[in-house]
């Protein structure tokens, strides 16, 4: 569906923010795009949606370069950006103006998502608070049913109840034909939903693995005793006790802790990489 091949991109001459990026997004699954601040997560999203052009390599959606921004390509993707605004029009008018461009838009689903987010009916969308605007846009984005849905920090600005509403909406909006790519640094908010993890580190994709394979290769430890952390490639102390991760040599079944995984990649990239060769 979406293919990134040997892609490189820089804001400054010869100083690559992203270099030799290769990966593929296939239908069905929630992809978590993780990375430190300034690692290029948003830039990668913009490149994948054709909002910027790679300097080397290609990014194609169904075989067509994303940068061409053909209507046929654009009606199959939807990007929910981190910064957003809504026009001063009614919900009805917004749907009338924007839904015709998305052939698979489903009004019934849209109303259902508005209900999940408990959004009040307003005459003018500009009356919504920032959080409500985001929830409205998430509802619209999910109802477009585009095969590719990109979200840049979707839980930023959402209160605690809204985050669980968000997870519910994503679960309902997911299908086998659709992939949702979520760029975030708030891993705790989305941990339970992510099927595949893409980690951006040191200008390239350091890890591109399914959560199942990660659980297969790595053992995540939660303990109150420091002695239990033997063999860990990364560990830290939290108010609840110690957490750590080590190679899963004994085939132990453990829940993937994305924060610990991410920190282990930052601190020991080569060790983590070698586990997935």
């Amino acid at each position: 569906m979406l293919k990134v091949e040997e892609m490189a991109f820089s804001y400054r001459r010869n100083e690559y923010l992203l270099n030799k990026i290769n990966f593929e997004i296939t239908p069905g699954g929630v992809y978590g795009l993780l990375g430190k601040n300034g690692s290029g997560k948003s830039t990668l999203l913009y490149l994948m949606t054709g909002l910027m052009f790679p300097h080397i390599g290609t990014i194609t959606i169904d075989g067509i370069p994303a940068g061409k921004r053909l209507p046929q390509t654009m009606q199959n993707i939807y990007l929910l950006p981190e910064e957003y605004d809504l026009p001063a029009v009614s919900i009805e008018r917004y749907v009338k103006n924007n839904a015709p461009f998305y052939p698979m838009f489903n009004r019934e689903q849209f109303d259902n998502f508005l209900q999940i987010f408990e959004l009040p009916q307003v005459k003018d969308l500009s009356q919504y608070s920032m959080g409500q605007k985001k929830k409205f846009l998430v509802s619209f984005a999910l109802a477009t049913n585009t095969p590719l849905l990109f979200m840049d920090e979707p839980t930023n600005g959402l209160d605690i109840p809204s985050k669980s509403q968000f997870r519910k909406a994503i679960a309902l909006g997911m299908s086998d034909e659709r992939s949702i790519i979520i760029s975030t640094h708030q891993v705790r908010d989305l941990e339970s939903m992510i099927d595949r993890v893409l980690v951006l580190h040191d200008n390239s994709i350091m890890l591109n693995e399914s959560v199942m394979r990660i659980a297969d290769k790595m053992e995540f430890v939660r303990t109150t005793s420091k002695e239990d952390l033997q063999g860990c490639i990364y560990s830290t102390f939290t108010p609840q006790g110690f957490v750590g991760v080590r190679p899963n040599v004994d085939g132990v079944d453990s829940l993937v802790d994305l924060e610990v995984l991410f920190n282990s990649i930052i601190t020991n990239p080569d060790v983590v990489k070698s586990l997935f060769v």
Partner: peptide, 10 residues
């Protein structure tokens, strides 16, 4: 935000 909205309209 405006640019993205404009550029991504199909």
């Amino acid at each position: 935000a405006n640019k993205i909205k404009f550029m991504l309209t199909p």
